[in-house]
Design a protein around this nucleic acid. Sequence first.
DNA 1: GCACTAAGTTCAAGCATTGAACGAATGAGG
DNA 2: CCTCATTCGTTCAATGCTTGAACTTAGTGC
Lengths: 379, 379
Amino acid sequence: MTTVDHLRQVRLGNLRTVLLALVDRPGSRADLAARTGLTKATLSNLTEPLLANGILVEDAATLAGMGRPSKPLRFHPDGPVAVGAEINVSHLAVETLGLDGETTCRRLVPTDTRTSSQDTVLDQVAELVREITPNRPLLGVGLAVPGVVHDGVLVRAPNLPELVGAPLAEALSARLGLDVELDNEANLAALAHLWPRHLAGEDFVHVSADVGIGAGVVLGGEVYRGASGFAGELGHVVIERNGLSCTCGSRGCVERYAGLDVILREAGRRRLDSLAKALRAGDPKALDAVRNAGEALGVGLATLMNLFDVPTVVLGGSYAVLHEHLSAAAQSEMDTRVLAGGERHTRLVASPLGEFAVVRGAAGLITRRAVLQPERLVG
Amino acid sequence: MTTVDHLRQVRLGNLRTVLLALVDRPGSRADLAARTGLTKATLSNLTEPLLANGILVEDAATLAGMGRPSKPLRFHPDGPVAVGAEINVSHLAVETLGLDGETTCRRLVPTDTRTSSQDTVLDQVAELVREITPNRPLLGVGLAVPGVVHDGVLVRAPNLPELVGAPLAEALSARLGLDVELDNEANLAALAHLWPRHLAGEDFVHVSADVGIGAGVVLGGEVYRGASGFAGELGHVVIERNGLSCTCGSRGCVERYAGLDVILREAGRRRLDSLAKALRAGDPKALDAVRNAGEALGVGLATLMNLFDVPTVVLGGSYAVLHEHLSAAAQSEMDTRVLAGGERHTRLVASPLGEFAVVRGAAGLITRRAVLQPERLVG
DNA sequence: GCACTAAGTTCAAGCATTGAACGAATGAGG
DNA sequence: CCTCATTCGTTCAATGCTTGAACTTAGTGC
């Protein structure tokens, strides 16, 4: 603690407030002052180093009626970007995201990672990152993996056992010379809906099914991770205490009734797009399979909502694709089972982000940290 | 915002830090400086008005080896107190609690509130509060009710429909001339284990059964309430999707298998103490009933822990009494069903607080606010 | 008595925000 | 074309909280 460290904290807090206002939308110093509750004087002071460092730019003066024209500030188009990367069982993906929330580049490469060694996968990811890296300062890399992450380590990944326990972040960091932050794909998909815009401010749960079923829970503007990273394991919520055996050792887990593999098997399909086509064609077997899954999912979600009391559920991943045929059954179960549901507090919506949600969230993890902890931007 | 409001915020924040350190244990200025990271100078400055206002006292000098003896500071024994009050279906309770966490007075009066009007109940509570009020400044009243509270209003109380929707806090406040804060009994029982000491700092869930089953979830040192106060409704977590019908409209709710009424009926008993005696005597019917309830509760808790990932469950209320005969079955279900449970992360403990937990939490709600928002103490 | 140690107090220095005053840039009206 | 009204952005003295160092106080050990 130096002499006046506490005042520096006040300044950083205000800097964060200003940057958050700018993420919401650009604005002149006077406008930002009005929106943040700070004074014009403080805004001049706070934005000066951001302009000097190339984080912000001053647009040409805007004529807006009477008085001196304002000069809006916004994030510099050549300012720093974050990189998101995703390792999944069937594909790798990367994306670059600016502080303004604009994606400048993205790639998705089908890859069967289950058969690859850890080194091979990391080499591939590093190569992809290099390919899309623009000529702009880099904030760091967010890395999404399908499994439970605790203290920066992948501690559980039923579908990628090869990667469990390994120092993934360090290994990728060594290859790229950048900070790498590791997190669970369900949490990052949820984050993508929260940052930088969309459902900002609201509590919600993002649910997706790929191999298992994962829920990312957003409370008070933060992804809730739990004591050891296991929070939001919706797939292993029990809906029939003596039901089907699950690989986790329990019985009657939601995953055994509403997992994507189950839906496909029941529908007699091998791939999601084939199922989607069958649904559009009105194939009764496919419709039945999805409706049954929707019911099971609805029971699990009802339980989740009775515990978390969040008003909104976002269906992502495969569920977003099936949303149209899945929601009715799920919503019906929720309506009868959620206590706060009498007044129709529960909302079930499809994710608008598509297959890039996870990698978007991975990059967002980095841009978000840069905004919330702006000390690195001004340093 | 006045000129230097932000500096006042810094001061209040430090004041809070110091008061929290004092709640933990008394200490001299030098000791507090070491524990809080502030300087001795700041501590002299911050504690001066607290001493002047009668919040703190300076003990006689303590000789502890070499150097000038320290003069420990602690909360003044005649300083302000908070009042906790509880309205339950079968009893009313009140208690006074000092900032130091010492209970000075408590009363529990068996009363059948279901047959009383709202006015009668409030009159009785107000009378009880007056009876135990000591000759010390009063911080306010925390009022616990068995139901869902949102925005200071009781919005759901299956067992006390008479009180739903009424402005309970205002009505009691008018009778007593004190601020009254309303909250749910499950949340307050949880708070009692968190504040002022006990499990402070750890995430946990407090579960109790009286009429329904309520869980108070403590995350990051705060009671988690959810978007509309319905969080932690463990009683309506589903464990058998096509199981027994519940009054809530759902089927297979935990409450229908592990509620106190169910246990008593299965055991052929009418009262909890009679059941406890039967258990001690080894009555097989009673043991069976409790074990079955334990299993159902364990399934519900496993689901809860897979969603919240909290390491500890505290059994309170009737469950604390039955703990010995309930835990084994519940723990067994949890061990096989909680994902993070492999390394025995899940801990199931009985509450040490007994029947005063709720009213303790109600009073704690007020002392806690006084410490966390100390502006009122120095004003 | 004297050196030593630790507690508590005093005080000048440092600094982020603030409100008011000021300078800058434009539109409206004559 | 000139002046006034209006709004944007900057400058500046004032405020008041924490800090580290110096200082005072009050004991122990020899």
